[in-house]
Design a protein around this nucleic acid. Structure first.
Length: 594
RNA sequence: GGUUCCGUAGCUCAGCUGGAUAGAGCAACUGCCUUCUAAGCAGUAGGUCAUGCGUUCGAAUCGCAUCGGAAUCACCA
């Protein structure tokens, strides 16, 4: 039981004794004392004044007296208006440091293998174009959430669903066949996904030209968009693919392999991996049977044009197509099938989808159909982790128009910036190889932190001209703090000596650091429950900021009192470990020197 | 038009299960390296928390309305 819990329990008992009223846990609000007041934790007593029928100050004092009596670690308290500020004995904090600084899994829950897993789908790329900054956000969020859930003791299975078939892939294939048939990644010395992406852009260019030409010959634009010869050819190619035409399938296999080889490099550099990868070409027929069964049960109905539909107007949504008139499936059909497949395969406690907020409506429909129409009792376990778009000053990124920030280019740029900065600062004690490794750690760290520190549901504005900062609330700032502590520990000859008794009752900054460290487990818990890595990032920043103030203002190795010196050393080591652990939950590495 | 999300300092963001005087970073200005790594620290300046009404002892936080922005309402994924 942690302090807040035991304080809460005693408050409940006290209110019962003093005022003969039973209150619930929910009505108790205890938080970290604000730094301008004295104390460690603060209880709001306003909710109890109606019960006590006394003014807030008297009520606070009565509760404070009781807490002090009943809990031996409560040192004192003060009352400011209706706020009861509770100070713990300094030995409480020393004990905490002593115990947890040796605990390698501080803040983590031990993983429970036997519980039903959480399925976490993320990334889910199309194979017709390379990954861009928007995909980076998706991948980083998915990866960080997987790590955070695991730290909170959950059994997480990372899923990727690769969209490897469809008209968009045919567009790239067609352009390759028509204009670039001799090209391979090797022959052009190009990353496979980049090469295929080039064809996709080329298709769009030709398509637009054809529409324009048709329009000039007097054909209305909306008709031209459907009749452009190049589009018809792509559609024909998709039909051949579905008929398993050998030549088309071979080309498709070949080009997808190119893309996968490219993606693998990008994933590897980002530090992303999956436990299982599904391919849409294997699963795209999945939902059809369920729809047909639903039709028999009159959950769905057949429209006069032959398509199968569902009317969701009673639930505030619209009519939705589930199967086309020709019997082929649409996206929602596949997702219904996928969800059922996954449920049957894993019996998950949750199915989380990391997908952009542009698909909010889609997931509303999906959950509604699964829950209300198909009556799957597990449908409420579906959770759409909806994140905001990454926008440029010019607006949304569009692959087809080439207005994207390419994932690989951005990583290169960040690493180059880190390297330049390192050289500017005159870090001369590193070998070339060490500089490269350090630049990778710093550059990628800066990128990841930049993305993950923002609340997932908010849009991110990325200005390529300003790029990503390396100062202030950034990963390099945090990494630097870590490296400085590592340096202290390397220099000290006492780092392995045990903590000894020391009076820290007046060490306010140190106690503030300890209070923050104490909050690490609950931070992981909240981030896990909310599926929100930004809570971890903000926590780290707060901790590091206070530590830096301490580092700057207070002698550590140079402290003459050995007991105090050891205390500060242990505190520093514990901070470094916790910061590093928290950063690892964001997938960010830490350098021991920088 | 319907639905959902967003609106906090010049810019980028914290703070939101209601709590004390709304915080950081960037940009600007001022100090601090003969002392543990200055990728740092301290300070100055910058706010009608979009607006209005309501609920409450207490509202940036909750509710309603209005205004602004985004997404979506596909036989695309």
């Amino acid at each position: 039981m942690n302090v807040k819990e035991s304080l809460s329990q005693v408050v409940i008992n006290t209110i019962e004794e003093l005022y003969a009223t039973t209150i619930s846990q929910d009505s108790i609000n205890i938080q970290k004392t604000r730094k301008e007041f004295e104390g460690d934790f603060t209880l709001m007593v306003f909710p109890f004044v109606k019960i006590s029928k006394k003014n807030p100050d008297i009520t606070a004092k009565e509760i404070g007296d009781s807490l002090k009596n009943k809990l031996d670690y409560v040192e004192s308290f003060n009352v400011v208006k209706g706020f009861l500020n509770i100070s713990l004995k300094h030995t409480f904090w020393l004990d905490f440091l002593q115990k947890e600084s040796k605990n390698d899994t501080f803040g983590h829950r031990t993983p429970s293998e036997n519980t039903s897993p959480i399925l976490l789908e993320f990334s889910s790329p199309n194979t017709n174009k390379p990954l861009h900054l928007g995909h980076i956000r998706n991948n980083l969020l998915g990866d960080a959430i997987a790590r955070i859930l695991t730290a909170n003791g959950k059994n997480v299975i990372r899923l990727n669903l690769v969209n490897d078939r469809g008209i968009h892939i045919c567009k790239s294939m067609l352009m390759h066949q028509k204009h670039f048939a001799n090209e391979t990644p090797q022959s052009t010395n190009t990353k496979g996904d980049k090469l295929v992406g080039k064809y996709y852009v080329a298709f769009d260019k030709q398509y637009k030209n054809e529409i324009e030409q048709l329009a000039e010959s007097g054909i209305p634009k909306d008709v031209a968009e459907k009749k452009a010869p190049i589009l018809l050819e792509a559609q024909e190619m998709l039909r051949k693919w579905e008929d398993e035409d050998k030549a088309v399938r071979v080309l498709w296999q070949t080009m997808n392999q190119w893309v996968y080889q490219g993606f693998d490099l990008t994933y590897k550099r980002l530090g992303i991996h999956f436990d299982k990868t599904y391919y849409e070409s294997d699963t795209y027929l999945l939902g059809k049977k369920i729809i047909e069964e639903g039709l028999k049960k009159h959950v769905f109905y057949q429209h006069e044009d032959g398509s199968i539909r569902i009317d969701l107007q009673a639930d505030g949504l619209d009519e939705k197509i589930l199967l086309r008139a020709d019997g082929t499936s649409v996206y929602i059909t596949q997702d219904i099938g996928n969800a059922v497949l996954r449920y049957e395969e894993y019996q998950p406690s949750q199915l989380v989808y990391v997908v952009g907020n542009e698909q909010n409506y889609h997931f509303d429909v999906l959950r509604l159909i699964l829950a209300k129409k198909l009556a799957y009792p597990w449908a409420n376990r579906l959770f759409h982790l909806s994140y905001g778009m990454v926008e440029l000053p010019s607006g949304k990124m569009k692959s087809r128009e080439g207005t994207v920030v390419d994932a690989d280019d951005l990583m290169d740029e960040m690493v180059a910036m880190a390297k330049q900065k390192t050289e500017e600062l005159g870090k001369t004690t590193f070998s070339d190889a060490e500089i490269d490794e350090l630049s990778e750690t710093i550059g990628l760290g800066a990128l990841k932190y930049f993305i993950l520190k923002v609340d997932p549901k908010k849009n991110i504005l990325f200005n390529p001209d300003e790029s990503i900062d390396l100062n202030g609330n950034t990963a390099p700032f945090i990494q630097y703090t870590y490296a400085r502590i590592c340096s202290l520990l390397r220099k000290s000859t006492e780092a392995s000596l045990p903590l000894t008794t020391v009076d820290i009752s007046r060490q306010d900054t140190e106690k503030e650091i300890l209070r923050l460290l104490y909050a690490y487990p609950e931070t992981i818990e909240t981030a896990s429950e909310d599926l929100n890595p930004s809570l971890i990032a903000n926590y780290i920043y707060e901790l590091v900021k206070v530590y830096n103030r301490f580092y700057q203002e207070t002698p550590i190795l140079k402290e003459e009192n050995q007991a105090l010196r050891l205390f500060r050393l242990h505190l520093s080591a514990f901070t470094a470990r916790t910061v590093s652990d928290a950063m690892s939950l964001l997938g960010i590495n830490m350098p021991e020197r920088m």
